[in-house]
Amino acid sequence: MKHTISVQLRNKPGVLSRVTGLFSGRGFNIESLCVAETMDSELSVLTIVSRGDAAIIEQITKQLHKLIDVIKVTDMAELPYVEREMVLLRMKAVETTRAEVLRIADIFRAKVIDVSSKTFTIEVTGSSSKVNACIELLRPLGIKEIVRTGTVAMARAPKK
């Protein structure tokens, strides 16, 4: 099963390589990985999407926690959370397809951020499933290039 894991860690050189080394060394899978500084410049948050049964995910979270520079590990499956991913798509935009590309982009509330005579560059933001749905609809119209950020996630704030 797919799991989104949020890892708070010390913002120091080599920390990312400790995390990725752990995944490659133990044969854990990484579907996406996204890392940046937080409000506190001494800390980073890394969002990692991985796949595995309960035992593997348990090992992943425990092994992550064992890293000296890791402060907190949260498996998002354990609580309500929101997640977003951004994708940049370079679309073929010839006369016959231009209108259709724009229409689909509009449905997904995607933005055109760059235009040339033969292409549109579109920014799509949303959960992975929404982004994937958009890509699938655009694919027959001719995608020239895709760049994805990977997922970032945050636990929902308590309601009260």
Binding site: P13, G14, S17, R18, G21, L22, G25, I68
Partner: peptide, 16 residues
Amino acid sequence: IVGITRPCTKHNYLVG
């Protein structure tokens, strides 16, 4: 050596 020994140490440091 910090890179090389990352998977076989409990932790390691390059003093900055």
